[in-house]
Protein backbone atom coordinates (compact mmCIF):
# COMPACT_ATOMS: atom_id res chain seq x y z
CA UNK A 1 0.00 0.00 0.00
CA UNK A 2 3.01 2.26 0.44
CA UNK A 3 3.04 2.72 -3.30
CA UNK A 4 -0.40 4.38 -3.11
CA UNK A 5 0.37 6.60 -0.11
CA UNK A 6 1.00 9.53 -2.47
CA UNK A 7 -2.78 9.73 -2.94
CA UNK A 8 -3.01 11.03 0.63
CA UNK A 9 0.20 12.92 1.23
CA UNK A 10 1.18 14.84 -1.90
CA UNK A 11 -0.54 17.72 -3.65
CA UNK A 12 -0.53 15.95 -7.02
CA UNK A 13 -1.70 12.65 -5.49
CA UNK A 14 -4.61 14.37 -3.77
CA UNK A 15 -5.69 15.95 -7.05
CA UNK A 16 -5.33 12.54 -8.71
CA UNK A 17 -7.75 11.13 -6.13
CA UNK A 18 -10.15 14.04 -6.75
CA UNK A 19 -10.05 13.31 -10.48
CA UNK A 20 -10.61 9.55 -10.15
CA UNK A 21 -13.49 9.91 -7.69
CA UNK A 22 -14.88 12.78 -9.78
CA UNK A 23 -14.98 10.69 -12.96
CA UNK A 24 -16.53 7.83 -10.97
CA UNK A 25 -19.25 10.20 -9.73
CA UNK A 26 -19.80 11.43 -13.29
CA UNK A 27 -20.52 7.86 -14.43
CA UNK A 28 -22.93 7.52 -11.50
CA UNK A 29 -24.73 10.71 -12.60
CA UNK A 30 -25.18 9.23 -16.06
CA UNK A 31 -26.85 6.08 -14.67
CA UNK A 32 -28.91 8.05 -12.14
CA UNK A 33 -30.09 10.45 -14.83
CA UNK A 34 -30.89 7.65 -17.28
CA UNK A 35 -32.96 5.68 -14.76
CA UNK A 36 -34.84 8.72 -13.47
CA UNK A 37 -35.57 10.00 -16.96
CA UNK A 38 -37.97 7.08 -17.35
CA UNK A 39 -40.53 9.21 -15.48
CA UNK A 40 -40.89 11.14 -18.73
CA UNK A 41 -42.55 8.10 -20.34
CA UNK A 42 -45.52 9.55 -18.45
CA UNK A 43 -46.89 6.11 -17.64
CA UNK A 44 -47.75 6.94 -14.03
CA UNK A 45 -44.27 5.95 -12.96
CA UNK A 46 -44.65 2.29 -13.93
CA UNK A 47 -41.31 1.96 -15.78
CA UNK A 48 -39.57 4.13 -13.19
CA UNK A 49 -40.85 2.05 -10.26
CA UNK A 50 -39.69 -1.12 -11.98
CA UNK A 51 -36.24 0.37 -12.60
CA UNK A 52 -36.10 1.62 -8.99
CA UNK A 53 -37.10 -1.85 -7.75
CA UNK A 54 -34.27 -3.38 -9.80
CA UNK A 55 -31.70 -0.82 -8.57
CA UNK A 56 -32.86 -1.37 -4.99
CA UNK A 57 -32.72 -5.16 -4.98
CA UNK A 58 -29.99 -6.20 -7.45
CA UNK A 59 -26.97 -7.41 -5.45
CA UNK A 60 -24.45 -5.97 -7.92
CA UNK A 61 -26.00 -2.52 -7.78
CA UNK A 62 -26.27 -2.70 -3.99
CA UNK A 63 -22.58 -3.61 -3.75
CA UNK A 64 -21.67 -0.76 -6.08
CA UNK A 65 -23.70 1.55 -3.86
CA UNK A 66 -21.13 0.94 -1.13
CA UNK A 67 -18.38 1.88 -3.60
CA UNK A 68 -20.37 4.95 -4.56
CA UNK A 69 -20.54 6.14 -0.97
CA UNK A 70 -16.82 5.54 -0.46
CA UNK A 71 -16.07 7.51 -3.65
CA UNK A 72 -18.49 10.26 -2.68
CA UNK A 73 -17.12 10.63 0.85
CA UNK A 74 -13.55 10.56 -0.43
CA UNK A 75 -14.37 13.28 -2.97
CA UNK A 76 -16.14 15.37 -0.32
CA UNK A 77 -13.51 15.13 2.41
CA UNK A 78 -10.52 15.49 0.09
CA UNK A 79 -12.27 18.40 -1.64
CA UNK A 80 -13.01 20.19 1.62
CA UNK A 81 -9.44 19.57 2.80
CA UNK A 82 -7.99 21.02 -0.42
CA UNK A 83 -10.36 24.00 -0.31
CA UNK A 84 -9.34 24.82 3.25
CA UNK A 85 -5.64 24.10 2.71
CA UNK A 86 -5.28 25.96 -0.60
CA UNK A 87 -7.05 28.93 0.94
CA UNK A 88 -4.23 29.35 3.47
CA UNK A 89 -1.46 29.72 0.90
CA UNK A 90 -1.86 33.49 0.57
CA UNK A 91 -2.26 35.03 4.01
CA UNK A 92 -1.93 38.63 2.74
CA UNK A 93 -4.67 39.00 0.11
CA UNK A 94 -4.42 41.25 -2.95
CA UNK A 95 -5.79 44.78 -2.61
CA UNK A 96 -6.99 44.58 -6.17
CA UNK A 97 -7.32 41.33 -8.06
CA UNK A 98 -8.54 40.74 -11.58
CA UNK A 99 -9.42 37.04 -11.43
CA UNK A 100 -11.90 37.21 -14.28
CA UNK A 101 -9.13 38.33 -16.63
CA UNK A 102 -7.41 34.94 -16.43
CA UNK A 103 -9.93 32.33 -15.26
CA UNK A 104 -13.65 31.61 -14.91
CA UNK A 105 -15.42 32.32 -11.62
CA UNK A 106 -16.70 28.75 -11.35
CA UNK A 107 -13.23 27.23 -11.76
CA UNK A 108 -12.19 29.34 -8.77
CA UNK A 109 -15.31 28.40 -6.78
CA UNK A 110 -15.28 24.59 -6.84
CA UNK A 111 -15.17 24.39 -3.04
CA UNK A 112 -18.20 26.67 -2.70
CA UNK A 113 -20.15 24.93 -5.49
CA UNK A 114 -19.27 21.55 -3.98
CA UNK A 115 -20.48 22.68 -0.56
CA UNK A 116 -23.79 23.85 -2.05
CA UNK A 117 -24.06 20.44 -3.71
CA UNK A 118 -23.34 18.73 -0.39
CA UNK A 119 -26.12 20.70 1.34
CA UNK A 120 -28.48 19.78 -1.48
CA UNK A 121 -27.37 16.16 -1.23
CA UNK A 122 -28.26 15.94 2.47
CA UNK A 123 -31.81 17.02 1.66
CA UNK A 124 -31.93 14.77 -1.40
CA UNK A 125 -30.83 11.67 0.54
CA UNK A 126 -33.36 12.47 3.26
CA UNK A 127 -36.14 12.75 0.67
CA UNK A 128 -35.53 9.52 -1.20
CA UNK A 129 -32.61 7.37 -0.11
CA UNK A 130 -33.44 7.20 3.60
CA UNK A 131 -37.11 6.62 2.85
CA UNK A 132 -36.40 3.71 0.55
CA UNK A 133 -33.57 2.11 2.58
CA UNK A 134 -34.45 2.73 6.19
CA UNK A 135 -38.25 2.77 6.29
CA UNK A 136 -40.64 0.11 5.07
CA UNK A 137 -42.83 2.63 3.27
CA UNK A 138 -41.77 1.40 -0.14
CA UNK A 139 -40.90 -2.25 0.58
CA UNK A 140 -44.25 -2.79 2.28
CA UNK A 141 -46.02 -1.44 -0.77
CA UNK A 142 -47.69 1.50 1.02
CA UNK A 143 -45.98 3.89 -1.34
CA UNK A 144 -43.96 3.72 -4.57
CA UNK A 145 -40.81 5.74 -5.18
CA UNK A 146 -42.65 7.59 -7.93
CA UNK A 147 -45.43 8.39 -5.48
CA UNK A 148 -42.79 9.67 -3.08
CA UNK A 149 -41.42 11.97 -5.79
CA UNK A 150 -44.92 13.26 -6.56
CA UNK A 151 -45.39 13.98 -2.87
CA UNK A 152 -42.10 15.86 -2.49
CA UNK A 153 -42.47 17.92 -5.68
CA UNK A 154 -46.26 18.16 -5.89
CA UNK A 155 -48.48 21.17 -5.31
CA UNK A 156 -47.08 21.79 -1.80
CA UNK A 157 -43.48 21.20 -2.80
CA UNK A 158 -42.48 24.60 -4.16
CA UNK A 159 -39.58 25.01 -1.73
CA UNK A 160 -38.22 21.56 -2.59
CA UNK A 161 -38.49 22.33 -6.31
CA UNK A 162 -36.58 25.58 -5.90
CA UNK A 163 -33.86 23.88 -3.84
CA UNK A 164 -33.53 21.08 -6.41
CA UNK A 165 -33.27 23.50 -9.33
CA UNK A 166 -30.60 25.50 -7.46
CA UNK A 167 -28.83 22.19 -6.75
CA UNK A 168 -28.85 21.41 -10.48
CA UNK A 169 -27.42 24.83 -11.33
CA UNK A 170 -24.58 24.25 -8.81
CA UNK A 171 -24.03 20.82 -10.33
CA UNK A 172 -23.85 22.29 -13.82
CA UNK A 173 -21.16 24.83 -12.90
CA UNK A 174 -19.29 22.26 -10.79
CA UNK A 175 -19.20 19.94 -13.80
CA UNK A 176 -18.31 22.70 -16.29
CA UNK A 177 -14.95 22.95 -14.58
CA UNK A 178 -14.72 19.52 -12.94
CA UNK A 179 -15.23 17.36 -16.02
CA UNK A 180 -12.27 18.68 -18.02
CA UNK A 181 -10.22 19.44 -14.91
CA UNK A 182 -10.32 15.73 -13.97
CA UNK A 183 -8.60 14.80 -17.23
CA UNK A 184 -5.92 17.46 -16.72
CA UNK A 185 -5.26 16.13 -13.20
CA UNK A 186 -4.84 12.64 -14.63
CA UNK A 187 -2.27 14.02 -17.05
CA UNK A 188 -4.48 13.80 -20.13
CA UNK A 189 -3.89 16.97 -22.13
CA UNK A 190 -3.16 16.54 -25.80
CA UNK A 191 -4.25 18.59 -28.82
CA UNK A 192 -5.83 15.46 -30.33
CA UNK A 193 -8.12 14.74 -27.34
CA UNK A 194 -8.67 18.18 -25.85
CA UNK A 195 -11.50 19.21 -28.22
CA UNK A 196 -13.35 15.92 -27.47
CA UNK A 197 -12.92 16.31 -23.70
CA UNK A 198 -13.97 19.97 -23.85
CA UNK A 199 -17.10 19.47 -25.95
CA UNK A 200 -18.11 16.26 -24.15
CA UNK A 201 -17.65 18.00 -20.81
CA UNK A 202 -19.63 21.04 -21.90
CA UNK A 203 -22.49 18.93 -23.26
CA UNK A 204 -22.60 16.72 -20.17
CA UNK A 205 -22.51 19.68 -17.78
CA UNK A 206 -25.48 21.34 -19.46
CA UNK A 207 -27.66 18.39 -20.53
CA UNK A 208 -27.53 16.16 -17.44
CA UNK A 209 -28.37 18.90 -14.88
CA UNK A 210 -31.08 20.15 -17.26
CA UNK A 211 -32.75 16.71 -17.35
CA UNK A 212 -32.47 16.46 -13.56
CA UNK A 213 -33.99 19.93 -13.10
CA UNK A 214 -36.83 19.07 -15.48
CA UNK A 215 -38.02 16.27 -13.14
CA UNK A 216 -39.18 18.31 -10.12
CA UNK A 217 -40.37 21.09 -12.44
CA UNK A 218 -42.50 18.74 -14.56
CA UNK A 219 -44.01 17.17 -11.43
CA UNK A 220 -44.71 20.49 -9.75
CA UNK A 221 -46.33 21.93 -12.85
CA UNK A 222 -48.53 18.84 -13.16
CA UNK A 223 -47.11 17.80 -16.53
CA UNK A 224 -46.78 14.17 -15.37
CA UNK A 225 -49.66 11.92 -14.37
Amino acid sequence: MKVLSFLFNSSIGRKFAMALTGIFLITFLLVHCGVNATIFFNDGGETFNEAAEFMGTNWLIRTMEIGLFIGLLWHIFQGLWLWQNNGMRRKQKYGKSAGNANSTWYSRSMGLLGTLLLLFLVLHLKHFWIVSRFTDEITSGQETLYGEMMEVFGADGLISVVVYVLGCISLSYHLLHGFQSAFQSLGINHPAYNPIIKSLGFGFSIIVPLIFAAMPLAMHLGLLQ
Partner: peptide, 20 residues
Protein backbone atom coordinates in the same frame (compact mmCIF):
# COMPACT_ATOMS: atom_id res chain seq x y z
CA UNK B 1 7.25 17.94 -6.07
CA UNK B 2 8.22 17.06 -2.47
CA UNK B 3 10.17 20.32 -2.25
CA UNK B 4 7.30 22.26 -3.83
CA UNK B 5 4.89 20.89 -1.21
CA UNK B 6 7.39 21.51 1.60
CA UNK B 7 7.80 25.15 0.53
CA UNK B 8 4.10 25.71 1.14
CA UNK B 9 2.83 26.23 -2.39
CA UNK B 10 -0.81 25.20 -2.89
CA UNK B 11 -2.24 22.38 -5.01
CA UNK B 12 -3.39 22.94 -8.60
CA UNK B 13 -7.07 23.73 -9.20
CA UNK B 14 -6.66 23.77 -13.01
CA UNK B 15 -8.19 27.24 -13.29
CA UNK B 16 -5.62 28.14 -15.96
CA UNK B 17 -4.81 31.54 -14.42
CA UNK B 18 -1.06 30.73 -14.36
CA UNK B 19 -0.78 30.00 -18.07
CA UNK B 20 -2.95 33.01 -18.92
Amino acid sequence: VNQMDAEGFGACSNTGACAA
